[in-house]
Amino acid sequence: MIPATFEYVRARSVREAISLLQQHGGRAKLLAGGHSLLPLMKLRLSQPEMLIDLGPVDELRGIREEGGSLVIGALTTHDEVANSPLVRERVPLLAECASQIGDVQVRNRGTIGGNLAHADPAADYPAAVLALEAQMECEGPAGIRTVPASQWFVDLLTTALGPDEVLCRLRVPVQTLGQGWSYTKLPHPASGYSLLGVACLVTVDGGVCRDARVAVTGAGPKAVRLAKVEQALVGGRLDEAAVAEAARLASDGLEATDDLYASAEYKRHLAVVYTKRALLRAVERARG
């Protein structure tokens, strides 16, 4: 399978990429690692007339800590996120999520920015960035703006990123002491995408749950937070019965869609099962 023909330009800077996007409008797509876009282009589901390769743009690389957050460049590969000592120490939920994406070869090429800009409904990062309340930093002709994860995912394969904007980096608040975490998924055996994945962060103090954030990916057109589960957890003690009781609410009002691999009903069932598993693991970690 070969993509349809397209024009190819290498951007040398974010500013240059933005000006190319302005010149070529909806005809052009940004290329990062290409592990979401190229498969679609090979199937001719996507046929951009121009690819603007961000590969040479070094300002989009790197991971650093700044004011209580990790700043992660959009071109950082899944492998770099999974194995970065800084991410593993400061935001272990994100590292755990990255380590479960695809396979080694996919993690070596796929990037966090490309993944989040593509917003595949079965991708893993969306659940993690929702639970972590990360911020996406985008640059466009008017300058830099920051979009919270809660407003990033708009619909199937659709994000808040503007047509002439580049997703440059993420700001991910570092996890704190007493916070337990888990990313738990059922991978499709061939593609590695999530049939269903759950990211959670729970803060426990004196045996009582002070804060809970639970997000699910794979069920419907976009990843979502599970507010009812979160409300049921906060203020209570997180024993197995309480967790199971709260997890039962995961399917309550959850938008799930039938696809080739699983029915909506099965996905709702998986949401309950994987929410419980993810929460039990997180609670165990919160206890230390």
Binding site: L38, V104, R109
Partner: peptide, 9 residues
């Protein structure tokens, strides 16, 4: 690093 060369231009 190992990559899948069918998915790299």
């Amino acid at each position: 690093k190992a990559v899948k060369s069918c998915t790299v231009l």
